[in-house]
Amino acid sequence: MSSDLYAVVGNPISHSKSPLIHSLFAAQTHQDMEYTAIQAPLDDFAGTVSGFFSRGGKGLNVTVPFKEQAWELVTWRSDRAGPAGAVNTLYRDAEGHLCGDNTDGVGLVRDLTLNHGVPLRNQRVLVLGAGGAVRGILGPLLAEQPAEVVIANRTLTKAQALVDLFAGGVRLSAEGFDSVREPFDLIINGTSASLQGDLPPLDPSLVDESTISYDMMYGFETTVFNRWAEHQGACRSIDGLGMLVEQAAEAFWLWRGVRPDTSKVLSQLRQEGF
């Protein structure tokens, strides 16, 4: 009997930690599965997906730049994936329909609340950025019932578009980077600026001694955003490695019906320098 086949699809893909993470999950939970990385041609994501499942593949994770294409490709989308406009987890149902979910938001929430004990209910939250990464996490974040969420972005119209899309029970507003001044309980960086060693134009008044900073990016060293927040006096700073592991665990649970112990995997990744 051959192992069940899973993979992550992206372009480029050689840097992906998903094969390592899922292999650790599989070993921990005694699942007979193989997980690889597939670099899809930029002009044939759909063909790559079709070929994988026609070979008997069981599930795919999707990373940049294909998450929006995956959203368009699926027959059924979860409640999380619908407003996110992106899909990062694919599988087929009993009738063979291609199904899509987005586990990024629940990964963020689980990392904050379970791994770090950060409360979200009744908190004032500032989210930096209005691109696909932020759109993917807003639904689960708002479901935690924070007191207020402000989306700040260089282009105000993009932030306002997200406010219009996700407007509901939680107080939600849009601002430009340079117009936000007061301190927040939690600041989430959803821009990719720290990957380039850059920062949005942020006012120091956003941070006080009770502020927690969370960068959805991660690296071998403290991100530029988290260094900035620490310099302004933030009480804690957290990077996005836990979000990566938690979103992977949610996909693993969707596929296998087993939830791995993410704390052990996170600990191992940290020990290996991630």
Results as ranks from 00 to 15, higher is better:
Met216Arg: 07
Met216His: 06
Leu195Asn: 07
Pro83Ala: 03
Cys235Asn: 07
Val74Glu: 08
Glu230Met: 14
Leu206Pro: 09
Met1Ile: 11
Glu72Val: 06
Glu246Thr: 00
Leu142Asp: 06
Pro83Val: 03
Arg236Cys: 00
Gly51Met: 10
Gly197Glu: 10
Phe66Glu: 07
Tyr35Cys: 11
Lys67Ile: 04
Trp255Phe: 01
Leu202Val: 05
Lys58Thr: 06
Asp185Gly: 06
Ala26Val: 11
Met217Trp: 13
Gly257Trp: 00
Asp101Gln: 07
Leu138Met: 08
Gly169His: 14
Thr48Phe: 03
Asp178Lys: 11
Ser16Arg: 09
Val163Tyr: 03
Ser213Tyr: 02
Arg259Glu: 08
Thr48Gly: 04
Arg181Thr: 11
Trp253Asp: 02
Val49Ile: 11
Thr211Gln: 12
Ser14Ala: 15
Leu142Thr: 02
Val245Trp: 04
Glu175Leu: 05
Arg135Thr: 04
Thr36Ala: 08
Glu272Ala: 08
Asn226Asp: 11
Gly57Thr: 09
Ala229Ser: 13
Pro119Val: 02
Ala249Leu: 03
Tyr35Glu: 13
Met217Gln: 15
Gly56Lys: 11
Leu60Arg: 01
Gln268Trp: 07
Glu68Asp: 08
Phe220Pro: 07
Tyr218Leu: 09
Val207Cys: 07
Leu269Val: 05
Ser2Asn: 15
Ala174Lys: 07
Thr113Met: 12
Pro12Asp: 10
Asp164Lys: 02
Pro19Cys: 07
Leu141Gln: 06
Arg55Gly: 12
Gln145Ala: 15
Gly117Asn: 12
Arg124Val: 00
Gly10Gln: 08
Ser173Asp: 13
Phe166Gln: 09
Ile13Cys: 14
Thr48Ser: 14
Met217Ala: 15
Thr157Met: 02
Leu138Tyr: 09
Trp253Glu: 14
Leu202Pro: 04
Ile212Gly: 01
Gln247Trp: 01
Ala193Asn: 01
Ile21Glu: 09
Ala167Met: 05
Gly100Asp: 13
Thr262Ala: 01
Leu98His: 06
His116Phe: 12
Leu241His: 04
Leu42Glu: 02
Met33Leu: 15
Ala147Tyr: 00
Pro201Phe: 01
Asp111Phe: 08
Met216Phe: 11
Leu108Tyr: 06
Val64Phe: 15
Ile151Val: 06
Leu98Lys: 11
Ala229Tyr: 09
Asp215Phe: 10
Arg181Phe: 07
Val62Trp: 01
Leu141Thr: 05
Leu241Cys: 05
Val8Tyr: 06
Leu199Cys: 09
Tyr6Asp: 08
Ser78Val: 13
Gln268Ala: 14
Thr36Glu: 10
Ala27Arg: 13
Gly169Thr: 14
Glu272Met: 13
Gly47His: 03
Pro201Trp: 02
Asn115Gln: 15
Ala94Tyr: 10
